[in-house]
């Protein structure tokens, strides 16, 4: 079948800033955790991907979610908060670990994200090396330490 790899994604990175996306992918590559990674540039694309709609209608199956979503907050079209809300409200997608990865240290954002069900909230370190280490730790934790539910009967 075409595009099977879109149904076997490890990390879905939703980030509109090209530099930040590059840094993130580079850090993952360095630690050999870039396999089956998809990067999208705004919240609308992310929703289409996650819910297998729009431009991903033919190539994605909602029952095979990415193992981890790294989600920026401030993005064009649909922002990260709205994406988070939609993921955490739908029984089929609710269990996907969502880590908010943002430069916003503002407490209302942090609070709001946790209230909407974000699994974790990480502020992007400004320092390049720290940023890379943080990405490594996030990927390691969510892909190797955390136990997601099985895909069978995913309805929560």
């Amino acid at each position: 079948m075409a595009n099977m790899e879109l149904n076997d994604v490890q990390i879905l990175l939703v980030e509109d800033n090209d530099d930040d996306a590059k840094l993130t992918i580079h850090a993952l590559e360095k630690n050999k955790m870039e396999k089956n990674l998809v990067r999208l540039k705004d919240g609308e694309e992310a929703l289409d991907f996650i819910f297998a709609s729009g431009k991903f209608l033919e190539t994605r199956n909602i029952a095979f979610p990415p193992k981890l979503i790294l989600l920026d907050i401030r993005m064009p079209k649909v922002n990260g908060i709205e994406v988070l809300q939609k993921i955490k409200c739908a029984p089929l997608t609710k269990a996907i670990p969502v880590v908010i990865l943002t430069s916003s240290k503002e407490d209302p954002d942090i609070q709001k994200c946790y209230n909407l069900g974000a699994n974790s909230y990480v502020v992007k370190p400004i320092d390049f090396e720290k940023f890379a280490l943080t990405i490594k730790d996030i990927a390691y934790y969510w892909l190797k330490v955390n136990q997601p539910p099985s895909l069978e009967n995913l309805y929560l």
Binding site: K105, D107, I110, Q111, Y114, S120, Y121, V122, V123, T134, D137, I138, Y140, Y141, V145
Partner: peptide, 17 residues
């Protein structure tokens, strides 16, 4: 595993105040 867990939630994750 526990060491990694501690590192992640104490140093990487940002909790609300």
């Amino acid at each position: 595993t526990v060491a990694q867990l501690g590192l992640y939630w104490l140093l990487i994750n940002q909790q609300p105040k």
